[in-house]
């Protein structure tokens, strides 16, 4: 049995990579991928803890997370597509028609 800490470290690493990518990338699609990474870091946790606690809650939750992540990507790509139509780019830093 792999100790639970290893999973935690793994998921924290994946989460951090996602966060890093999200903060540094300007491409909207890479942004989406980074978010996926972060969500899947949570999934690692859910599944690992599910085994740890011996109940299925975490596994079921990870299914939900997957489903919603997919839906999120679907909506996100739709928005990025609209963005591309209006700005001809998928660079998230580009649209600045409303700076404060």
């Amino acid at each position: 049995m792999v100790p639970i800490e290893y999973y935690l470290v793994l998921s924290a690493a994946v989460f951090s990579i996602g966060l890093y990518g999200l903060l540094t990338r300007e491409n909207a699609l890479l942004f989406l991928m980074s978010v996926e990474l972060m969500l899947n870091a949570a999934n690692i946790n859910f599944v690992a803890f599910s085994v740890q606690w011996g109940n299925l809650t975490g596994q079921v939750m990870s299914l939900f997370v997957m489903g919603l992540a997919a839906a999120e990507v679907a909506v996100g790509i739709g928005i990025i597509l609209v963005l591309y139509r209006n700005f001809n780019d998928v660079d998230v830093t580009l649209p600045q028609s409303m700076r404060w």
């Binding site: 909207a28 928005i79 963005l83 209006n86 700005f87 649209p95 600045q96 409303m98």
Partner: peptide
């Protein structure tokens, strides 16, 4: 969909 502000806000 054709409004820059709206799509930017959405993003």
């Amino acid at each position: 969909k054709d409004d820059r502000g709206s799509s930017e806000a959405g993003l």
